[in-house]
Every structure is written in C-alpha cells, then in structure tokens.
C-alpha cells in the first residue's frame, strides 16, 4: 500500500503485515508517522510522537 508523506510529499510504502501502532518513517524527510487505523484498502496515519528522553527498554 502507498501513501504520500504529509510533510514532503514523498511516497511511503506501507508493508502488508504492518499493524496499528507501528511507525512508518518517510525515506526522504525522516518524519515518523504512526499507523492509527488500517484495513484492506486504507490506512490512516498521524505524525508520531517525538522520541522522549525517557524512551527505552
């Protein structure tokens, strides 16, 4: 599935097995998008949260 980067207009490829909550990074501008919903034909994304200092494992 293909989407357009909302920031730079580059083409984003959404892998078939991707799931809601996953992050898709624009290959051109590096913006991270979070998948918020996904079905057979459509995928909705929003800009992902920026990495926090408390992020980790």
């Amino acid at each position: 599935m293909k989407k357009e980067c909302k920031d730079c207009g580059a083409e984003l490829t959404i892998p078939q097995d991707s799931m809601v909550g996953e992050i898709i990074t624009c290959p051109d501008c590096g913006t991270d998008f979070e998948i918020v919903s996904k079905n057979q034909d459509t995928v909705e994304m929003k800009e992902a949260e920026s990495v926090g200092e408390d992020w980790g494992q």
């Binding site: 799931m19 809601v20 909550g21 996953e22 992050i23 979070e34 992902a48 949260e49």
Partner: peptide, 13 residues
C-alpha cells in the same frame, strides 16, 4: 499496552 509498536510487541501479539 504499548505506545509505539515495536518488533517485540508484534512478536508477542
């Protein structure tokens, strides 16, 4: 419960 779905959460799910 996740806030960013990583390889690990997908594997576990």
């Amino acid at each position: 419960i996740y806030d960013k779905l990583r390889f690990e959460e997908k594997q576990i799910y």
